[in-house]
Design a protein around this nucleic acid. Structure first.
Length: 121
RNA sequence: CAGGGUGGGCGGACGGCCGCUUCCCGAAGAGUCCGUCCCCGCUCCGCGGGGGUCCGGCCUGAGGGGGGAGGAAAGUCCGAGCUCCACAGGGCAGGGUGGUCGCUAACGGCGACCGGGGCGCUCCCGCGAGGGACGCUUCAGGGAAAGUGCCACAGAAAAUACACCGCCGACCUCGGGGGCGACUCCGGGGGGCAAGGGUGAAAAGGUGGGGUAAGAGCCCACCGCCGUCCUGGUGACAGGGCGGGCAUGGCAAACCCCACCCGGAGAAAGGCCAAAUAAGACGGCGUUUGAGGUCGGCCCGGCCGAGCCGUCGGGUAGGCCGUUGGAGGCGGCAGGCAACUGCCGUCCCAGUUUAAUGGCCGUCACCGCAGGUCCGAAGGGAUCUGCGGGACAGAACUCGGCUUACAGCCCAUCCGCACGU
RNA sequence: GCGGCUGUAGCUCAACGGCAGAGCGCCACGUUGCCAACGUGGAUACUGCGGGUUCAAGCCCCGCCAGUCGCU
């Protein structure tokens, strides 16, 4: 069983990090999610989530974030290290973990060019 | 019985796997950062350099243990604590509250009481107007004889009352008739009246009688109202006696008046550390004859006070504290109608910051629908199987309320043998 | 966290507390061979929602909802 934790070092926490990810050219989207990916030079992947006020209530926003976090956590093996992954939800109602996970993996592979994957330190 | 009303409570449980956050313990490890220890130098406080890693702290951390959303955490509508503004002073302006008494840290909250309004196949009294009892319900409920303003349309008239239809023909007068005459009859005018009609949300007390030409508080009785005194009550008020023929329409959630309350800003408060630009340019005001500040406006007084304001240009926007033990929860006893309070015992119960408290699965319980079986006279109930469902909503300094949202369940009480079956 | 403003016909806006209106748009008819323009007539609103005050509320008061703009 691979270690599937989600500590703070795997999260994006700065305003500047989010702004940089939005400026990145590596983008992909499908009906469920939208992804902005960016090289972070840290040798590990990091996750950022933005759920707008369009989703009215706080519990609904939390639900979306939790599902995306869970999908990220369980599928980290399939993601390229050294990248920041900023996700935005496009579908906001009746989400399931399975569809979020499928979308997340697919978009990550689509947005990140395999050649640019940095060597492990 | 179903189904409702009112008040109160709960807001799924258990297990498996994988995670998040915080606190504590901590095998072991590393750096040589700080303290400490040793040596050396300098002008003996101290400072600088070198070294050791025994001890303490910091750092990393296998593993173990404890805690981890709500009744509304929400809206931000009130009230406080707390922090800063030197103290939080006076007046104006502004805002808020509004029956009384109490509770409270405080409140626009809560409790009890008082007083209005509305409703009743209800009851009692009265010829009647109406009064009383009971039950339910509702009220932002100070002041309208300080002032100002408004009251559309309709209507004759809307607050100095008034006279369209109408009623009267006592008094004055004109015309006509009858009678010898005293006088009398008819019609009109001046005039008298406000009972009836009609309008309106509202028509200037009401009912019954007397009275009159007709009428009218004109007079009387009762009901209502006003004034005054007495009694009871802390009080709002209540009850009673006496007096007055009745004045005082409504609106203050219109301006306003009265009483009481309110200094401002808010944890992005505020404090500390680190990092970074620059001692930037131009313009204006000012240094004891005082700029500016004292986070809403004006004035006065007091205080601080040498810088302040505008435009352009540039830099940083990271960490720690505040930050969770409190008007605190639970239980018992006592006081009070109650809100609530006192005493004793006991418990420690989130502390995040792109923001934790979760994800998936299973079992049970719950609810709805469909079908079967059983019980009952029936409405229904019990049980089994299958399918579906699980609300409103996420702490962000902390409390007390208010308001709003909410699947389903439980308890108490009331309506309901029926106008649902 | 603190504060302001707005909500009325399909759209943009009016309305001393007294019967909710204007412009554009829409519909019908006329005009034209047809269309546009023009002319005539007409429809369209539980004034965001729920209460209250008042004889009477779009307007006054209270509570919600939605939108929008600021400050730090």
């Amino acid at each position: 069983m691979p270690w599937a934790g989600y500590p703070k070092m795997l999260r994006m926490t700065r305003r500047s990090e989010f702004d940089a990810a939005f400026e990145s050219p590596h983008k992909a989207k499908d009906p469920v999610l939208q992804l902005h990916a960016r090289l972070n030079g840290l040798g590990r992947p990091r996750l950022g989530i933005v759920v707008g006020r369009k989703v009215r209530t706080a519990p609904a926003r939390n639900r979306i974030k939790r599902l995306i976090r869970e999908a990220f956590r369980l599928n980290r093996e399939k993601l390229a290290s050294g990248w920041d992954y900023l996700f935005l939800p496009r579908k906001t109602e009746k989400l399931t973990l399975a569809e979020v996970a499928a979308s997340l993996v697919k978009l990550a592979q689509k947005a990140v060019p395999p050649a640019e994957e940095p060597p492990k330190p």
